[in-house]
Design a binder for these strands. Structure first.
Lengths: 353, 353
DNA sequence: ATGAAAGCGCTAACAC
DNA sequence: GTGTTAGCGCTTTCAT
């Protein structure tokens, strides 16, 4: 079936069929009806390849992901997919499969520059997509990685400081500040933090939030309570053990991700202490495991779907040429805490301060 | 840039450019060189939309997923994506977003029949893909859901009994048999099982394997030790508690998924008993949480990437018209156990039998 | 309001 | 070995 046969069957021209199908021009009710009857009778659908060739638009958004197995990626795609679908766009997915090669090498993406750009150019200049969303596995600046292109590009989860590139991430700093303030409000004063790999962006941003919380609460952080981790379970365990073994241990520990929080909780248990009665713990990420730790982990939830939604919206706005000058270069999605069972309230009267 | 300009610049015809780019005909070395030079100078890439229109082939595989957030889905896509890429195919992803609507309603997919078929027909008859892979969130028979289509279709993770439809799943029965035999080999005789929702396919298939293991080992299963669960954590906890409270409790429990295994482990701990010293536990799925439970859960790993690889391979074989008559209608990927720390070896001399 | 026809960029049949 | 050209299915300009 094609538009010519539909036209013949309905006794009109192909132009008319096109007009009624796309609503591009007024067509008399009679002809419109005839066309629609034939169309539905044969279940005709426009050949979108031919349409694309003609209108130079594919209605496809290329989604380039560093690795679909990254814990944050599926939920982001979920958001992209929803918003794209609502607006008549399809998703062309390209998985770079960098999970193994990027493990613990958060900033060594430069080595993959060529592959990434080749994938983008294949997508773009093969005329297969109208725009691309690059979904990072890590929250870091990938400035300089993606070559300038003449179609809309937005980076999700990662960022880039180039002015030409829009990105959408989440608010590391404010939520970290909030997490610490929450601990203050629960009566904690000796608060330890186990950081992520200290050179990484989220580790620094989260630390900024932590420090701000202390400042605003009017307390001086105890430097001996700030320990370097590396995002992995094992670091959480060993740093947690150190903390527990101190002569004056903290009453609460903020681990900068759930994996380290899990390690810390295990270290606390293994020392014969109880979470949260003896030591409270808060994590970051709200991975699936957070809900299955014992007790269930209080942590911060990243609105991944929201990131995907916003990324898709940005790209669609760019495609439709909405006034982009008002759109901020960098969209920051707020996070929120999910309160579960690893934080205890300290009885102020006890003099724990 | 297009093929005509390349042709002009190289001083040849468009046909010649096409011949060298596609290797479809012999071209003299001289002309070939001239063409390649112009092509690389301008970074020309074939407009694949125009090519598709002409050759009536898109080199796109439509991947329709019930929900990308399902725990098994990303790894399957990873496999599909890898095999597709190796063979020059792209992935057009369509996320049906049925996570919420399908939660705990494993077999109520019939209600979504229209939406599913609309998505397929949009993909297919909009001439946007050459074939489709349907990725289920659950391991169950979806016969009758997908209308017959005239292009290759393979179902991954779910199955269909229609002869026309190929599917690839994993081996519930054999691995369940193996899991129980493993427990026997570790000296266990009083083995309990907490099933999944008993009407679901994997619950029945896994039970079949369990029963076969008992039979082949020459033991009669104790019916009071076979308890119905529903795949959720809470059921694992309550069934686990019942088991623990028995006058003659089991020495090992096979929970039919990791979520229930987690619940069971917690019930055991809460009863003041130790996993695995007092009671061993084995799960199923090898979700991320399995590696973070304490102790780490011994479970069965489903080769999800392998399912994706096989699904893509099947579809590609069909597209290339390999001899499909020899391809089995249903491909079953074997599973393997991942041995961690929740199973103890029982000292036979103790007379535990 | 409607239709004829050009043309999007490509491949491949056909002629030389 | 190489070039000319028709035509894939559609949208849209232009004429009526």
């Amino acid at each position: 079936m094609n538009i010519r046969k539909i036209a013949e069957l309905a006794g009109v021209s192909t132009a008319t069929v096109s007009y009624v199908l796309n609503g591009t021009k007024n067509v008399t009710a009679d002809k419109k009806k005839r066309v629609m009857e034939v169309v539905s009778k044969y279940g005709y659908q426009t050949n979108s390849i031919a349409k694309s060739l003609r209108v130079k638009r594919t209605d496809n958004i290329g989604v380039l992901v560093e690795d679909i197995r990254g814990f944050s990626v599926p939920a982001i795609i979920n958001g992209i997919s929803e918003r794209a679908g609502e607006n008549g766009y399809r998703i062309l997915l390209n998985d770079l499969q960098m999970l193994e090669s990027l493990f613990n090498k958060y900033d060594q993406i430069t080595q993959h520059k060529d592959r990434i750009n080749a994938a983008i150019s294949l997508l773009l200049y093969g005329a297969r997509v109208d725009a691309v969303i690059y979904v990072g596995m890590f929250d870091r600046d990938i400035t300089g990685i993606i070559n300038a292109i003449d179609k809309p590009l937005v980076i999700a989860y990662s960022t880039a400081s180039e002015t030409a590139v829009r990105s959408v991430t989440y608010d590391n700093e404010n939520i970290s500040c909030e997490a610490i303030k929450y601990l203050f409000n629960q009566g904690h004063r000796r608060i330890a933090v186990i950081t992520g790999l200290s050179r990484t962006f989220p580790a620094r941003a989260r630390m900024k939030g932590v420090l701000r919380a202390f400042k605003e609460a009017g307390y001086e952080p105890d430097a001996s309570l700030i320990l370097n981790g590396d995002w992995e379970y094992a670091a959480g365990y060993s740093r947690g053990s150190e903390l527990v073994d101190m002569k004056d241990p903290p009453t609460a520990i903020f681990a900068m991700n759930d994996l380290m929080a899990a390690g810390t909780m295990d270290a606390i248990s293994d020392a014969g202490l109880n979470v949260p009665k003896d030591i409270s713990v808060v994590g970051f990420d709200n991975r699936e495991i957070a809900a299955y730790l014992r007790p269930k982990l209080t942590t911060v939830d990243i609105d991944l779907k929201g990131i995907g939604l916003a990324a898709a919206q940005t790209v669609i706005d760019m495609l439709r040429n909405r006034d982009l000058t008002t759109t901020p270069k960098k969209t920051v999605i707020p996070c929120k805490m999910v309160l579960r069972n690893t934080v205890a309230t300290i009885n102020f009267s006890k003099g724990a301060l």
